[in-house]
Design a protein around this nucleic acid. Sequence first.
DNA 1: ATGGAACCTTAAGCTGACTTAAGGTCAACA
DNA 2: TGTTGACCTTAAGTCAGCTTAAGGTTCCAT
Lengths: 146, 146
Amino acid sequence: MTKDDLIAIGTLARRTGLSVSAIRYYEQRGLISAQRTEGNQRRFLRSDIRRISFVLVAQRLGLALAEIEAELAKLPQGRTPSILDWQKISRSLRAAIDSKIQLLTRTKGKLEECIGCGCLSLQKCQLYNRDDGAGAAGPGPRYILG
Amino acid sequence: MTKDDLIAIGTLARRTGLSVSAIRYYEQRGLISAQRTEGNQRRFLRSDIRRISFVLVAQRLGLALAEIEAELAKLPQGRTPSILDWQKISRSLRAAIDSKIQLLTRTKGKLEECIGCGCLSLQKCQLYNRDDGAGAAGPGPRYILG
DNA sequence: ATGGAACCTTAAGCTGACTTAAGGTCAACA
DNA sequence: TGTTGACCTTAAGTCAGCTTAAGGTTCCAT
């Protein structure tokens, strides 16, 4: 853990494609943490590049930051996560994708029934049964319909 | 088009499961429109139940209200949409689902490669290539990463 | 040692999709 | 005819996920 392992926020931004302000926001949210120099500037670990990459990938899969935080909490505390650690946590992402695909497939099936009957009516069709939860991660802060 | 075809906002709310305030919001956004009674109360067409159902279904599929508005614009103006009209527009929803499923499947494939190599690094993995667009309709107003 | 880029903090703003509050009006039934 | 529940409007609030602004400090190459 020499000084070379520590990177400034701008470097982290460049390496991940995130904006500096977004990184500060993530730190504030607790998704990453930083040491400080004597002059109060943040210094991140190189492994935080990977950590942020994970956040970004998980986001594309539709996970909210809070959920991602929960996933990240599974990583070992104290030591830099190993490749095995990342493999483990990535597998849990894969499960998330699978369930999303399943949900979409189910919805599609139901929609097809409805195209068949032409009703598109909540009462008659199954399209709206609440057991589906929040659906395909709808836009904005709605989460559960109803 | 007798008086019986017109329903009050509370009825529409009950029939669709939406809240009254959400319906007002949709009207303001232009997703539905209403006539007014002499006393300034909204009166909707019965067919607006279906219209709202469509909005709700499309939302679960991750479409934003603006996109849904665009879809609805394809409906015939002036006359109450027929079942055929709804079938047509529903098919375009099905296409949206299909592309979402494809995107997820692709992402999953890439993730699997990354689990294999353990890198989870934006530079090395394909996971982050921008040609994927907005991913699985991520949370919040981000839309396109970058 | 100095100048400018990169960093810092705090506060406010933004978008989408609504909800809640406050204060007032309408309608329909008993 | 009264009253009560359903309706009206406007304004502000909420949440997630950030960005932008303003004003100040640090780092580091020259």
